[in-house]
Design a protein around this nucleic acid. Sequence first.
DNA 1: GCAGTATTTATACGCTTGCATAATTACAGC
DNA 2: GCTGTAATTATGCAAGCGTATAAATACTGC
Lengths: 218, 218
Amino acid sequence: MTEQIATRKSFRRAGEDKRREDLIAATLECVAESGLAGATIREIALRADVTPGLIRYYFPTKDDLISAAYRAVMDRMTVQAGDALKNAADDGRARLSAFVTANLGQPIMDPHNLSLWAGFIALVHADPIMAAAHRDGYLRFRDELEILIREALIAAGKPAEPHHTRRHAIAVNAIIDGLWLEGCLAGDMFAKGELAVTGVSAIEAVLGVSLQIEGGAA
Amino acid sequence: MTEQIATRKSFRRAGEDKRREDLIAATLECVAESGLAGATIREIALRADVTPGLIRYYFPTKDDLISAAYRAVMDRMTVQAGDALKNAADDGRARLSAFVTANLGQPIMDPHNLSLWAGFIALVHADPIMAAAHRDGYLRFRDELEILIREALIAAGKPAEPHHTRRHAIAVNAIIDGLWLEGCLAGDMFAKGELAVTGVSAIEAVLGVSLQIEGGAA
DNA sequence: GCAGTATTTATACGCTTGCATAATTACAGC
DNA sequence: GCTGTAATTATGCAAGCGTATAAATACTGC
């Protein structure tokens, strides 16, 4: 039996980018599993197979890490929704439909994402910097949506005046957010794909346009 | 100059109900001001003008207090929305419209409420008790909404089959939640009453029913 | 190979937290 | 008024938190 004297942890250096990524990933794991309260420096370090001190080397304060993680989640969701557009048909209606469906299905509509998001939203009220970060994200999302709506209206041969598309964007954004919430919080109460269908239908009604075109995309 | 020896805090006994109310109110103040993280036992006790130990007398654990506070918030919002119905006309369409408008205006659509709500939602994923509390509130709200929708459809002479009203309730609930979110987070970006109007319009489109009847309610 | 430095570990400090327990005190019933 | 008890305060503890700082180590350039 070898004497197990306290020995210093062996380690390998990792590039700055890699480390930051790993630390953010570990943070998201913690939050996903036990909420923001469970995302302690020590627990995060444990998951990243690193000692707590190192975190401070890359993120001066815990808030820096947390807000970086928040941005990462938002970016990830944006990218995931964007990917759905790449595979969509050219038609504006199909694109809008694909966008909505992507946002109301896996992996975006996920309780873990909600936990993270809610934790941050709770901070928005107290922290102006966080509030600004959130507003940026919100406006970016809504602008993207407004463009998709305009394209869908045009594809359907309907007028697309800015005054109307803005209001439509607000309403459609609400539908997506609201259903996303419902799905994240009580996904088991709905059949698979039910919320996506519900969302597309509601949006069709609001826009007065059918988003289903014959021989739809895959 | 009187000797200021450490003297025991004087106190008056309060009824059990009153104390519970006060403690919950103090909890809500804390959460509203600085998020769930700011709602510590000591800070809550301070606001309620009570010593920390007393909290344990009424709420065995902190989670008990927090979840009680969450239920209180939900109940309050439910009551406020319900009040709007009392003053509404008899017509099902007017009632639905009033309900939506109430939920998308003061005092329900308020950043403080959002902070509270988000803080709790962040816990739902990790805490089964909190999850149950939320689900109860959600279903109660949606059921109430479904009844209003059915009445509105009937008032408009439209069929109101359970299969349809359920889906409608899901969609309308999403619209209300989504717009409520938008308003709470960035109320200054919208004209007063804009979101309520947007919500009613969107719901009219989804239901295929006009909620505005000639000589509308006050 | 060797020296220098950026990266990582180790250790510890000061604070705050939720919770437990014992001592006190206001009130109710007689 | 006195007594008993329920409500409240006071005190303290053990654990966990974020952060600071110094020592050790893996890698880089020569």
